[in-house]
């Protein structure tokens, strides 16, 4: 960054311009972001008598909520695993394909992102019902001998949510693989490494920071997702997000909803800090080279 110019009327401009430029954004954020979130924290830790940890103790003392938290983290892990298995090969091929197809396939990856998660979850619901394609397909392939209900199960939520988040994994990894020089792969192979060894020792190792970053991104989005778990999972597959909604909208227990929201927020923040640290570390390593 160069210093702003100071000649002529520039000195006054340099002083007031930043303030004027930031003022609208800072005002909107202060009123509609920082203030509400701060009061959310305050509400989660107060009751009629003043400061209290009662709402958090209620969470800590009830195995039902621990189960929900565990289920939420399990959902995050399963969704991350699926998006990795499908996302790594797809992103790698997208980054290495040299033709007009590459652009088209990238568009095809982006397109689902533009369709609301509600609509995409709805598509899965049609497939998941006892009478749907999935059930018939499993029976035809001999995996099941009677109709299978995937609707209102965790398995259904995992399948649907992994589809919702897969484009983000592919797009993140695409950037990572693009930045890895393919000559390094050629070099490894010309030194005698078989393709699979070159891929594992060179490409995947260089991409590991990006892979972890993409996984953390998908994981934190999966544990905070609401629409898909609520539509596909319903009441029988309760996760943190649906539990917060239930407390707030159906039971009108706002302080407890605020406490649950804070617990979710802290989990996501911790993951994001790890994500930021990883990206930062990668940048420094690259700069050092």
């Amino acid at each position: 960054m160069t210093k702003p110019e100071t000649k002529g009327g520039g000195a006054r401009w340099a002083l007031f311009a930043p303030a004027l430029l930031f003022a609208p954004c800072a005002f909107v954020y202060a009123v509609f972001f920082i203030w509400p979130q701060a009061s959310l924290l305050a509400i989660s830790a107060t009751d009629a008598a003043g400061l209290t940890l009662a709402h958090y103790q209620r969470f800590a003392g009830d195995s039902y909520y621990w189960e929900i938290l565990g289920r939420t983290l399990g959902l995050g892990a399963a969704v991350t695993a699926i998006t990795l298995v499908l996302g790594v090969p797809t992103a790698y091929l997208l980054a290495r394909v040299q033709s007009r197809w590459a652009g088209f396939l990238l568009l095809l990856t982006t397109f689902p992102l533009l369709v609301s998660a509600v609509v995409r979850s709805f598509g899965w619901m049609v497939l998941f019902f006892r009478d749907g394609l999935l059930s018939h397909g499993l029976m035809a392939l001999g995996f099941a001998d009677k109709p299978v209900q995937t609707m209102y199960t965790m398995a259904g939520v995992i399948i649907a949510l992994a589809q919702v988040l897969l484009p983000l994994m592919i797009l993140t990894l695409h950037g990572v693989f693009k930045s890895i020089d393919r000559d390094l792969e050629y070099a490894a192979m010309s030194l005698g490494a078989r393709p699979i060894v070159a891929l594992g020792l060179v490409t995947l190792r260089l991409a590991s920071g990006g892979i972890v970053a993409g996984s953390l991104l998908v994981f934190s989005l999966a544990i905070s997702a609401f629409a898909t778990p609520s539509l596909v999972g319903g009441a029988r597959a309760n996760v943190m997000a649906t539990a917060i909604y239930e407390q707030a909208i159906e039971l009108l227990d706002w302080p407890f909803a605020a406490a649950l929201a804070t617990i979710l927020l802290v989990t996501v923040l911790a993951l994001s800090l790890a994500y930021g640290a990883l990206l930062e570390g990668r940048g420094e390593r690259e700069a050092a080279r």
Partner: peptide, 17 residues
């Protein structure tokens, strides 16, 4: 930072606000 904030958390906070 709103990018990493779960929208549900934002929604609860704003509704109360």
């Amino acid at each position: 930072s709103p990018l990493i904030l779960p929208t549900l958390v934002l929604a609860v906070g704003l509704t109360l606000f």
